[in-house]
Design a binder for these strands. Structure first.
Lengths: 133, 133
DNA sequence: GCTTGCCTTGACGCCGACGTCAAGCCGTAC
DNA sequence: GTACGGCTTGACGTCGGCGTCAAGGCAAGC
């Protein structure tokens, strides 16, 4: 399988595959003509990468999963290093969600206060930026 | 007040102030020697920008607030355009928090499944990437 | 031989909010 | 005079994950 077919089957671009190879994440064998050659297992590795990417994992964070698969394990998360990434990611997600929730609350409070101020002192009102709500 | 003093009082760098000016967000008057000159009101504008930046607002999203203050209003969110930004941001935050929560649940499920698999078939275990948990 | 399509490498572009360096001017203290 | 700190503009670097040319090689059909 050459790069174009793998890209189509995985739903990525050839540029993406070359990029992964440049990062050492998905190296390819080469045919006599210099063309990259991939196998079915490369498609599985690629799918693993894509799933994690869709979760928001950075490319480097997918590496343990890929190496785990390449080591012959049926799942990319069968290795301790992968589980460690999962756990770290959960911690990061919790922190991020907490921060965003805090920001959301503060923005909502600012909005409510600003609306209340406009209600209590309705005129003269600022006309800048659109019609009054 | 020159750029260095304003930067110190606002807790930003001079580079940041020059950047804001280049974006047309915080223009400065100039003295005879070409030095930028700022007033106390510029400090207030700058503080408004920083609060919103800390909330994760993009620079362009702070513009309505700044122009509202510059129009003479006591608060940057006294204008409809600012309130619109608040509301849009709340929507974005809700969407983002929802997505992150979904991702968090999926990662947690993957982790639990992987741990269960290791428990049910404890050997031979993959040794790659560290000690077993 | 010529087109067509797929492949190769190399290199620059993008987004945002600046950081960092370079070369040189302004003003004050010594 | 000269040393120093603060100021000026200009321009390139950062981070991630690619997109988008450009110039050219390889294989197949007509």
């Amino acid at each position: 399988m050459r790069i174009g077919e793998l890209a189509r089957r995985a739903g990525v671009t050839t540029r993406t595959l070359r990029y992964y190879e440049a990062r050492g994440l998905l190296p390819a064998r080469r045919g006599d003509n210099g063309y990259r050659t991939y196998g079915e297992d490369d498609l599985r590795l690629l799918r693993q990468i894509r799933v994690l990417q869709d979760f928001g994992f950075g490319l480097e964070e997918t590496r343990p999963f890929v190496e785990c698969l390449r080591a012959g394990h049926p799942a990319g998360d069968a290795c301790p290093a992968s589980l460690a990434v999962y756990r770290r990611k959960l911690t990061e997600l919790d922190a991020l969600i907490g921060q965003l929730g805090s920001v959301r609350a503060q923005v909502a409070a600012h909005l409510a206060a600003a609306e209340a101020a406009r209600y209590e002192a309705p005129e003269p009102r600022c006309q800048f930026g659109g019609t009054t709500p």
